[in-house]
Structure formats: structure tokens, C-alpha cells
Amino acid sequence: MSDNSANRRFERESAKRVFAAELREAHHHFREGTDDKSPTYILLPTGERCNRVFIAGTLTEKKKSEGEAVFYQIRVMDPTGIFFVSAGSYQPEALHQISSIESPSYVVIIGKPGVFQAPDGRNLVSVRAESITAVDKSVVDCWILDTARLTLDRIEKNTDDPDHQKAAEVYQRPFESWRSKVKEALASIQL
């Protein structure tokens, strides 16, 4: 496949819907193909590669970096945990948007996930925001439904899928065990 990648029409990577509890456990990352521009992915524990995420929740903390370059770090809470999100000068749109959002507020974020190693050796997943928008609670609730549905799809997916098999090997955690997080998220919606 890689040798004809130049001829393939550009296709944007879809933004995966993933709950914080699952994203924070992802640590396996890889690059498809060998050249510099080939996309990098992280493998979600429910067995799907992911190069972009669409996440939502409550912005609970916003930190602007002290240094010369403007850099924001924010924490966004969904019903299952916390997303760590950042935006720097390479994400001008997100930077601009964050500057006018105060905590707490409901937000949706489109961005690229990355795995970083903390000084104590733990893996941290953080999302570099491409855009962040303040929204109504109803949008976050729609996102919870959407994410619940797509997470269940991943849990129930055919195990012949290579990403699914790889995840089973890397994470050593039964896919079924993620159902409880989906239930938790759905139960948090107050009608």
C-alpha cells in the first residue's frame, strides 16, 4: 500500500470519539509508512487507531505558560475522567479560541493525541487542540451519546481486525471491560 500512497487521494483522518478514561490508558503509538510525513497514530485500548480525536466536556482549569511563547494547558472533564489538552503557537486557531473561554465552560475540542513520558516513567496522553469551541451542555450530551455508540462499536467489532488484535496484545485488557465506562458516561446524563 505504501508505494502507491502518493497516488491516493488525500483523505482526512476521521476524528475518533473516545472517553477520557479510555484515552488516558492508550500508550501504544506508531507511524504508518516510513517517510517523514506519514501519519502517526495512537492505538486505543478498544482496538482502533486514531490520529485525531473529537472530545467534549467541562473546561475546569486553564493555565497560560509563563515563558515567552504563548502556550495554554487546559483540563477538560468528561463523565469518565480528565483530558489534558494543550495549544501553542502552531495551533493559532485554538490559541485564539482558548483565550476567550473561561473556566468552567462546556467545550468541544478537535485535536491530535500524543503519548508523552512523564519524568516518573508514566505515560501521559495529551491532546494538541486544533480547535476548541465553547458550546451548550446539549452538545456535550450529544457527544456522550455519539462516543458511547462508537465505543460500543469498537468493543463489539469483529476481532479479525488487525488493530483490534494488536490492542488485545498490547493492552492485555478485555475489550468488554470498557462497557462499564460507557455505562458510567451514559448514566451521567441528566434529563
Partner: peptide
């Protein structure tokens, strides 16, 4: 927001 979808997903999450 689709409350019917919520109920359906609750069942699905439970079921499997």
C-alpha cells in the same frame, strides 16, 4: 439530544 438513543445505548451497554 435524542433520549430514545440514550435508552437504546443504555440497553446495549448493559446487554453484551
Amino acid at each position: 439530544f435524542d433520549a430514545g438513543m440514550l435508552a437504546e445505548l443504555m440497553n446495549r451497554a448493559e446487554g453484551g
